[in-house]
């Protein structure tokens, strides 16, 4: 459907390719020949910096990113691409490679990746995958989809829990409110009729539950809780 729409409107899907391997690049180019509405607007083979510059200037619809060796900081690279494309609100990123464990995929999706094309998938599907990404759909290997979705659901659930203040006990919540009012530990102790050590202990527990060690961050949480 998307194919027809794109063809009907005469608009081509502008694709930018990053590949450090000539062999894989040749495979990608060959596979994309099957999509007449796909236009390769650039190929980057050298550095991530050159890729980032090309994204900024060429504003592709889809970025196909393939790296022959696994990159330890691939998530950071995806986030950097997301930061750039976030402003453009149009470029979508798809990784091409050997599918990593589901935990890593979830992290990558969170970092802005819209698809992962496994090298074991039929090459003829790469054009379909590119069209899907262009239509703002997600492309993942079918056999991995179920376990990945389960993982995403559990991570989202955990994040939601972490981001709320529900985990705090009523006393901890009171301490947090006092911090939000700018009170010192001593003032909180006097107001709540507890010792300074107990206040410290509550604050330590709040720090652990909210994953911070900043009193200012606690004050911001308190302000947040008062706004809603």
């Amino acid at each position: 459907m998307g194919k027809n729409n794109t063809q009907a409107s005469g608009k081509k899907i502008k694709v930018l390719i990053f590949s450090t391997s000539d062999l894989i690049l040749a495979g990608i180019l060959n596979a994309l020949e099957k999509g007449p509405e796909i236009e390769i607007i650039g190929i980057e083979k050298s550095t991530i910096d050159s890729l980032l510059s090309a994204i900024k200037t060429k504003k592709p619809d889809v970025i196909l990113f393939s790296n022959s060796d696994p990159l330890p900081n691939i998530k950071e690279i995806c986030k950097a691409i997301k930061d750039i494309t976030g402003d453009q609100k149009k470029s979508k990123l798809m990784l091409i490679g050997n599918i990593p464990p589901q935990e890593e995929i979830v992290g990558l999706m969170n970092a802005g990746v819209r698809g992962y094309f496994d090298l074991n998938e039929p090459s003829g599907q790469l054009a379909d995958a590119t069209r899907s990404i262009f239509k703002e759909e997600i492309w993942l290997p079918r056999d991995k989809m179920s376990s990945i979705m389960d993982r995403i659901i559990s991570v989202v659930g955990r994040d939601l829990k972490e981001k709320t203040l529900d985990q705090l006990t009523p006393t901890e919540f009171k301490v947090l409110r006092h911090i939000g009012q700018g009170k010192s530990n001593e003032e909180i102790a006097v107001d709540m009729f507890i010792s300074k050590n107990t206040v410290r202990s509550h604050i330590k527990s709040i720090y652990a539950k909210l994953g911070t060690h900043s009193r200012l961050q606690l004050a911001l949480y308190a302000i947040n809780s008062a706004l809603f």
Partner: peptide
């Protein structure tokens, strides 16, 4: 590949 510039991660939500 100048990856260092990409490692600036937020510590706080």
């Amino acid at each position: 590949n100048n990856y260092d510039i990409l490692l600036n991660r937020r510590k706080e939500w």
